[in-house]
Nucleic acid binder design. Structure first.
Lengths: 198, 198
DNA sequence: TGTTGACTATACAAACCTGTCTCACTACTG
DNA sequence: CAGTAGTGAGACAGGTTTGTATAGTCAACA
């Protein structure tokens, strides 16, 4: 009659406790940031025991690092790259498609902002593993932008990667402040950039 | 022999306790963010008593709001606007001067990032007074950008204000991640923007 | 059937946080 | 000289946090 036996059989067959922990942490961290979400809230919403969490993740820091990894998988790869590849057909269209995807994101119901930027600013000691991880995931995004720039024929793809990321992050922060049309503003800059730098 | 009598005469002549509290809070909050700086650290570094802090500021939230006010005074007005007015002579030069000032800032020894952006993302409940205050101070910056755009002859100064702020915030976040040349990248966009939108 | 391993639940430790309170001291004021 | 207001130092309350320890439950497996 206790609640833990009601779902699908307890033990390791119950859809992996680790998976449920990460899933819950993903939701909570991405919507509320790292610092304001405590372990107790995660174990409550994931319906697991505290000891179980600490068996799978030796500390909150490790859990945060796993969350950032998952964020790169789900946001950068499964969402952003997939969105672009499914819509844009030309190389320049893919560069512009970044900002079309952002536009959709900003207008979606639960726009939660960029976890990499938020984490980077929240944990701002440069030596913290979390800070370094967030910076690394942002570098991965920039690397992808650089590849898009390369394919679009940019004269200096690395520079264009940096430029695109400035426009991207500026739009995201602006959207987080309420400017839902920020993606379109950045997109206009990109159009001129593609004309003059390829 | 106690330390509190050693400086310049105790009591209210000792350079106002309130002033010392705000000054210390300014340093700590602007470099470390809001959440990770506790009251105890402020009173220790300001060499005041806890009761004195709570006499001048009824809560930490009120202290944070006062910090954000002071940040607008010191950063937006005393630094950014003054820097621009002292260097640029033409209206368009003032718009570009925003990003020259940012460039100096990014390269300065203790670049601490934008407290308004950091606070906005750290306290992301839209109803929190702190969140609203940070958004308001960002709106004040944007309003100033709009005035610069107006003076530079922009066809749509409000739109250009938004555009400039996207470029500005993107550069600041990028610089916070290590890209010290971010201001130059944004400046290049502004040059083309001034050509096409005035 | 008896052992093992992952799980739940909960109490607990140690450290932090904000905010209140008391007490002694000092300077200014009437 | 006496009173008052602001202050420094620090104890304290009540809440939070992360992480550990204990005790018992359940399922798989030899």
């Amino acid at each position: 009659m206790t609640s833990h036996a009601g779902e699908a059989g307890v033990g390791q067959l119950r859809v992996g406790a680790r998976e449920r922990i990460l899933d819950t942490a993903y939701d909570l961290f991405s919507h509320n940031g790292i610092g304001s979400v405590g372990i107790d809230r995660i174990i409550a919403e994931a319906s697991i025991a505290k000891a179980t969490l600490y068996r799978h993740f030796p500390s909150k820091e490790e859990l945060v690092l796993a969350f950032l990894e998952l964020r790169e998988q789900r946001w950068t790869h499964d969402w952003l790259e997939t969105e672009i590849d499914s819509v844009a057909r030309t190389p320049k269209g893919r560069v512009l498609g970044v900002f079309d995807a952002l536009d959709e994101w900003f207008h979606s119901a639960d726009f939660e902002g960029c976890s990499f930027i938020k984490t980077l600013l929240e944990i701002d000691e440069p030596d913290s593993p979390i800070h370094r991880a967030a910076a690394g995931h942002l570098a991965a995004v920039r690397h992808k932008l650089q590849i898009y720039a390369e394919q679009a024929g940019a004269r200096d793809p690395e520079e264009m990667g940096y430029q695109l990321q400035v426009l991207m992050m500026g739009a995201i922060v602006s959207a987080g402040r309420g400017d839902l049309e920020a993606a379109g503003r950045s997109r206009a800059f990109v159009e001129r950039l593609l004309e003059s730098s390829t």
